[in-house]
Simulated assay, not measured.
Amino acid sequence: MTGLIHQVLMYDNEKDILDTVVPFLQEGLSAGEAVLTVGTAPNLSCLRQALGTDSDSVEFADSASWYIQPTRTINNYSSFIAENATARIRVVAEPGWETGTPAQISEWTRYESIINQAFADVSASVLCLYDRRTTDPELLDGALRTHPQLVEYACARCNGAYLDPATVNARVDRDPLPAPPPGAVRLPIDDDDLSALRSFISGHARHHGMSRPRVNDLLVAATEVATNAIRHGRRPISCQMWREDDDLIVDVTDAGRWLPDPLPGFVPPDPSSLSGFGLWGVRMLCALVQLRTGPGGTTVRLHIPCR
């Protein structure tokens, strides 16, 4: 088999997992594939016990550290694929998220869709697990729209609800971003050296109690986005900042309009290339990056935890 097989199992109990996942893993081990299981701690323990000595041949990872944000997760899988370049890949993946803000749900849905495009040519079988009892219905709906195959009663079938990545991307990005709140602070970006911008961001970040490492991450990300706006956008360019729950939000807006590539900054760039690292690096540093572009201009919105 060549190419990606991307399946989803929505389970209701431990038996659903054991009946489907254990044979799936054992099939991969028998075929000499590189096998990875990412899951919640209780389910990893359950699978280790069910596999017995076969578990020694499986690499296990905890969802809590693997699924921090979409770009880092794609980077984790890219690294595993690179480390096992000569083998077929078999993955059981339980994201571990059960709820989130509308923006977070949209981005994780986009992530599941991106997998189909980013790893389309990778020889791999991936089975994603969602707990139907505790997961937000919006996330379950997103999972249905982003997996070409649906597994029920240990049998896989074509998923009629599946949508291609271009359609999912368009749906995620079709709604405008919420307007900044009245209390947001604003700075016009007039100087190309961006020293005023860095002072503006660092001062407000410290005011909101952001730790020094977080401030440094935010400065690198915001500087990259502002530099892109200066080089490729149109003036006027501005930056706005505000606090939203535990995150600090930074908007960089310009009057230009551009057509990003289908996977803007989600996939690790080719190490031999001299381009493509900017937006990918920004996504790696931030909890969430939202991008909107159209006749009214382009906005890149950065979310980064205060602590």
Rank of each mutant, 00 (worst) to 15 (best):
T298Y: 02
L218P: 00
Y77F: 15
N43I: 06
S199C: 12
F24E: 04
D136K: 04
V38F: 04
Q240E: 15
Y153P: 00
A34H: 04
Y67F: 14
T223W: 03
L259E: 15
V215F: 01
G265L: 01
P70I: 02
G3C: 09
R174W: 03
R110E: 10
M284H: 00
P236F: 09
P176S: 13
N116H: 06
D245C: 07
R88G: 15
S273A: 14
P148M: 08
T134D: 05
R110N: 08
A287V: 00
D254Y: 01
V35R: 11
G209W: 06
Y130H: 04
N216A: 15
Y11A: 04
E27P: 00
P148W: 09
H204Q: 15
D192L: 10
L129N: 04
V168N: 08
N13Q: 05
A31S: 12
V22F: 04
L144Q: 07
D175K: 12
T2E: 12
R283S: 02
R174F: 11
P271D: 09
D19M: 11
S63R: 00
L51M: 11
N75D: 14
L44H: 00
L25S: 11
H303N: 05
V267A: 04
V250L: 01
T73S: 13
L18I: 15
P213N: 06
P264K: 06
V185Y: 08
E112R: 03
P264M: 03
S55R: 12
I304Y: 02
Y130A: 13
S78L: 06
D54N: 14
A166N: 10
N159A: 12
N84V: 07
P70S: 05
P180Q: 10
L163Y: 01
S195E: 15
S78H: 09
T109N: 10
S202W: 03
P188M: 06
H208C: 12
T40K: 04
H6A: 04
S125C: 14
F277V: 04
H232E: 02
H147N: 10
C155S: 12
N216C: 10
C158M: 07
L288D: 05
D191C: 06
L177W: 06
P178S: 09
A222F: 00
A41G: 01
G52P: 04
V172E: 10
S65N: 06
R212A: 15
T227S: 15
Q69C: 00
L219V: 07
C155E: 13
A103V: 02
T227H: 12
V172Y: 09
V91M: 15
E112P: 02
T135K: 09
Y67D: 00
G209T: 04
L288F: 02
D121L: 07
D12V: 05
V300L: 08
L177E: 05
S238H: 06
S275F: 13
P181V: 11
A120R: 14
I89S: 04
M1E: 13
C306K: 08
R110G: 07
V172N: 09
Y162C: 09
E94D: 06
P295C: 07
V220S: 07
D254I: 01
A170W: 08
L9D: 02
E152A: 13
I304H: 11
H303F: 14
S57G: 12
P23H: 08
D247L: 11
F200W: 04
A31N: 14
E14C: 06
N76T: 00
F266M: 13
